[in-house]
Each structure stands twice: as C-alpha cells, then as structure tokens.
Amino acid sequence: MNDYLFLGERVGDWIRNGTNEFVRFLVVQYGDGFEAFSNFLLQALVWLERLLRDSPVLVVLAVVGLIAYAASRSIRLSVAMVIALWFVGTLGLWTQAMQTIAIMIVAVAISVVIGIPIGVLTARSDRARAIINPILDLMQTIPSFVYLIPAVMLFGLGKIPAVLATVIYATPPLIRLTDLGIRHVDSEVVEASRAFGATRWQMLRGVQIPLALPSIMQGINQTMMMALAMVVIASMIGARGVGETVLLGLQRNDAGQGLIGGIAIVILAIIFDRISQSAGARAQAHRRVAH
C-alpha cells in the first residue's frame, strides 16, 4: 500500500514540476510576445472602459435602451433594462459597473472570435470533435481559480490575466452550442443547397450558420453569464469592477457592502441575459420564417 502511495506522490511531482517547467519555458522563450499581446489588449480594454466611464450617464442609458429595443423590439423591455442599469448607479457602483461591462465585452468578444470557428470545425469534422471535446470537458471541470495561476505567471496581476481566465472559463458553452446548432440543421436543406451547386463555404455561410443562429445565440448568452460569474474571482488579481466591492465586503466583514455588490452583479446578469435571450428569440422567429 505504501508503495502505491509513493508512486502516486511521484506522479504528482512529475505533473507539478512539468507544468512549472512548461510555464517557465513560455515566459523565457515567448515573454516578449506575451507582453506585446498584453499591451495591445490592455490598450483596447482601457479605451473601452474610459469610453463607458467618461460618457454621460444618460448617453449610456440611451445606448442600452436602443440595444435592448433592437434585440427585442419591445419598448417595455427596453425601459426595464434602462431602469435596471440606472438602479446600479443609485447603489453608488456606476464606475465599477462600467469597468465590469468593459471586461465582459472584451472577454465575450474574444470568446466569440475563438468559439464560433472552433464550433464550426467540430461540427464539420468528427475527428476534430473527438479531440476537442475532452479538452472542453477539462476546461469546464477544472476550478476557475486554477486558470488564474498560469495567467498571472504569464501576464502578471491586473485586467489582462482576468480577461484571459474568463475567456478560458466561458468559451466552452459557445463551442458546444455552435457545434450542436450546425449539426442539427435539417439535412434536406443542406442537400438542397448542395444540389444547387453551393460550395461548402456557401452552405456554411448562407444555410447552416443562419439556421443554427438560435443555438449560437444561446451559446453567447451562456458565455456572458459565465463571464459575469468570474468577476468576483477576477477581482482577486486586480481586475477591479463590481467584483472588487464584493471582495472588499468579504475582507472587511462588511455584509452590507457585499450585498450591494451582489445586487449589482445580479442586475447586470439580468440585463445581459434578457437582451441576449431576446436576440436569440428573434433569431428563432426568423428561422421559422425561413423554413
């Protein structure tokens, strides 16, 4: 029995030492590249955060209302979203909310750029799906705190490791739902487009992606919710935002401050969820019309 325990300890040492050596190799060999990427991403994030934070409150509220109306064509929903965001401001967390929204927009945009093409790849190739699915299982199973360790080692403390850890945590649902949506497109429609001489790219762009759009939108919705779930964890490495309010409440034993931060996070989650769900519902309606 002791021999088995000793062997298990050696396996653990191999995994730990191998991982540390790999991260050190990346830092030494590609540190300049990581720094350049970090600076580029940080500039974009700071610009967006400054734009949201320095814009007049009424302008930001109007933009949110217009986006909600474009997604839902419902004045009631648009007004409700504006009131919800205004209420976050009344809690004294407007600046923190804008910081959180900026981080979320950047993280979700990166997730979309990465997730949709990979989802398309897994939908069109069973071999790629067999390789990528176990990786997605691993990404969704590993605790989110674990993502922060290599991110901090490669990029230091601050917003960038928080964004990248959020991307790793939030991208798998988008990949899976993109794959699922494309695979469930009616095969007769695909065959009809092929009979008319459409190329694979034309079928993907003109038939499969439009018909899979409701599933893709659901994936984006799930990505947004998982990204928002990371804001408190990301605040531990200097990401700021609403999550920092909750973290300070925890550190100071201030239940009231933690509650205010939690309410603000819930309101932001409702705003993002309702708008993305409405966009997905409209996409579903267009799909029925197309059929």
Rank of each mutant, 00 (worst) to 15 (best):
L204F: 02
W201R: 12
S144M: 04
L61I: 05
A285G: 12
I168A: 08
R16T: 12
I160V: 14
D32I: 13
A68M: 08
W14Y: 13
V64Q: 01
A44V: 15
G31T: 10
N2C: 04
A255N: 13
S72A: 10
G158T: 00
F34Y: 14
M224L: 11
L211F: 04
L157K: 05
G243C: 00
L164W: 10
A170H: 06
I132N: 03
V113Q: 09
D186Y: 14
G33R: 11
T199H: 02
E35D: 15
A62L: 10
V232K: 01
L7N: 13
R282N: 03
G256Y: 08
S144K: 09
N133R: 06
G258A: 07
E21A: 13
A255R: 13
G31F: 05
V82Q: 00
A290I: 06
A80N: 02
V232L: 01
L52E: 02
L268A: 05
R124G: 15
R176P: 05
G206F: 10
L268R: 05
I105C: 11
W201N: 11
R124L: 06
M104Q: 10
G33L: 07
P150M: 03
A239H: 02
G243A: 03
V146C: 10
R252N: 08
D137P: 07
L213Q: 14
H184W: 08
L250C: 03
T100D: 03
R200V: 08
T100F: 01
G156C: 04
S276G: 13
P117L: 09
S278V: 07
P134E: 03
G33N: 11
Y69E: 01
Q29T: 08
V11N: 15
R205I: 01
V82S: 00
V207P: 01
V82M: 12
V246T: 00
Q96H: 15
V152H: 05
T122D: 01
